[in-house]
Design a protein around this nucleic acid. Sequence first.
DNA 1: TGAACATATGAACAGTTATTCATATATTTA
DNA 2: TAAATATATGAATAACTGTTCATATGTTCA
Lengths: 119, 119
Amino acid sequence: MAIQDVEHCDCTEIHQKTVDQVLAQMPEEDVLYDLAELFKVFGDSTRIRILFALYGADICVCDLAETLNMTQSAVSHQLKILKQSRLVSNRREGKQIYYFLTDDHVRRIIAQGMEHVTE
Amino acid sequence: MAIQDVEHCDCTEIHQKTVDQVLAQMPEEDVLYDLAELFKVFGDSTRIRILFALYGADICVCDLAETLNMTQSAVSHQLKILKQSRLVSNRREGKQIYYFLTDDHVRRIIAQGMEHVTE
DNA sequence: TGAACATATGAACAGTTATTCATATATTTA
DNA sequence: TAAATATATGAATAACTGTTCATATGTTCA
């Protein structure tokens, strides 16, 4: 999966000017990596379902599992990933832990995606 | 990976009202699936790099491979996925095939993601 | 303090996916 | 038409990932 420095292109005629211009405007590799990692988090049905469930209300793990018809363990594993990406946060209330969307970024990203999907 | 109808939750006290409300506002399963599939396409460094390369200009496969330091085959495989998701389109010009972003949806989705990543 | 409850987590397994390699298709040009 | 060039694609492999199962952690209440 890593980008290797291989003999990459067997074409004879490269438009070097185009290549240089494109390279000049590309973001840094680590930004591209982080961006891909972010979208990867959205790129799973379970996590999308969790994010939608949290769209309008704070919910505890147990209710999430019930709502999405999943095991508590599976939900917890995915919540961990969502939390590491700072898409969701949580707070404890007694025995239960409530999760919620960290901020409106998530809603906007999802909204943009929905526009593409439902057009 | 499929959502199974298992005994999902061993909690005693479910907030049924919350569960029902959340379920009522969830999009259809197939919309959620499509949305996850869309983000999955963005969730790979190679494809993100291709999309950024196409951000400002139409580029042929060969120049893409050169720009991204990849084999032509790997680029073609990923372009196929991007095309199936209608994120990119292409046109032939003689021997070469130029790829370009289908519309501004892609740019907006990427822009939203960048906001989250670079904050 | 101990039992019950809610959540988190590590290991293992199964399914998925990106790249490579070899080769096929399609266009141009000599 | 044959050769050269540009792109596409199928099969195989290696790496990655989501779920399950078993269990650990942390909180409340009797």
